[in-house]
Amino acid sequence: MTDRVTDHDARALISRIETESARLAALAGDLSVPVPTCPGWTFAELITHVGQTHRWAVHVLRGQVQERIWSRQVPSDLAEGRSGDADWLMAGAAELLDTLRTTDPELAVWTWGPDRRASWWPRRMLFELVIHRADAELALGIDPVVPAEVAIDGVEEFLHNLPYASWVARPLAELGVEGATIHLHASDADGEWTITQGPAGKISWAPGHAKGDAAVQGTASDLLLLLYGRRSPEALTVHGDRDLLTRWLATAAF
């Protein structure tokens, strides 16, 4: 998927957001369960984070916000000191879905990524949900799986936005690996990408086959989870500089 989202793409993204929201809510039974992939969080914090992110997107889109605003600055509809639950999550998801369906994708709004249009938000909200649904499943001992076509788009959404994640650029710059390359190869779908570490911690990437200083092969689902720090490189096939791959992944995940 390119950075310009068609009507068909938007409908598919919104449908998947609806599905993923319901899947996450269904997992949110005991809110005291720890979530190991989000250190220090229980299900209560996980659900609250996702629901607050939905309300953030709604606030930006409905208010046609043009200046930077972060999710913590947006009202949560929760009493002070209270966490969200499954019903609260689904209420926010319903509001998000209605907003996405009725907002012009070309509307100019603030985003933290490169695309200052409303069309940036559905894709970001989908993969926020996908990864946190995976967090919930891992916490419950369930092996998460992302459909290959969704995971392929997720890898590209991650790489598309990563150069604009300012909170990641500084730690990447401190790795001292400028010019290093990492190649990703999906084993179950048509997906290959090469990431090049550039100056000042910024990255560039290109699709297609190439040789990298480090290369990793696995299912598209596993590659997506790997980029987000939810899969260990040990679970995939790695060639070349394993230390580079491990250090880069630990730093780049967000």
Rank of each mutant, 00 (worst) to 15 (best):
D3S: 10
H8C: 09
D9S: 07
D9M: 01
R16W: 08
S21Q: 11
L24V: 09
A26S: 14
G29V: 10
D30T: 03
D30V: 06
L31R: 00
V35L: 02
V35I: 05
T37M: 07
T37I: 04
T37V: 14
C38H: 04
P39R: 00
G40K: 00
W41S: 04
T42W: 00
E45M: 05
T48R: 04
H49A: 10
V50W: 01
T53S: 11
H54M: 00
A57T: 00
V58I: 13
H59F: 12
H59T: 03
Q64L: 15
R68E: 08
R72E: 14
S76W: 12
S76Y: 04
D77G: 07
E80C: 11
S83L: 01
S83Y: 10
G84V: 00
A91K: 10
L96S: 06
D98Q: 05
L100N: 00
T102W: 00
T103V: 03
T103Y: 01
T103F: 08
D104S: 12
E106D: 09
L107F: 03
V109G: 05
W112K: 07
D115V: 07
L126S: 04
L129A: 04
V130Y: 00
V130H: 08
H132C: 02
R133N: 12
D135Q: 06
D135L: 04
A136S: 06
E137P: 01
A139L: 09
L140A: 07
V145Q: 14
V146P: 10
P147G: 12
P147R: 12
A151V: 09
A151N: 07
V155H: 13
V155N: 15
E157K: 02
H160A: 15
P163I: 06
S166P: 01
S166R: 15
W167M: 12
V168C: 07
P171H: 10
P171S: 14
P171D: 11
A173D: 15
E178H: 04
A180T: 09
A180V: 08
H183W: 02
L184C: 08
H185S: 08
A186W: 04
S187L: 02
D188A: 08
D190M: 05
E192V: 03
I195H: 11
A200Y: 15
K202S: 03
S204V: 02
W205A: 11
G208I: 13
K211I: 13
D213C: 02
A215S: 15
V216G: 05
T219V: 11
A220N: 14
A220P: 10
S221G: 15
D222F: 06
L225A: 14
L227H: 08
Y228H: 06
Y228W: 13
G229R: 04
G229T: 00
R230H: 05
R231Y: 09
A235G: 09
A235V: 07
H239Y: 13
R242P: 05
D243A: 11
L244D: 06
L244I: 13
A252P: 02
A253S: 08
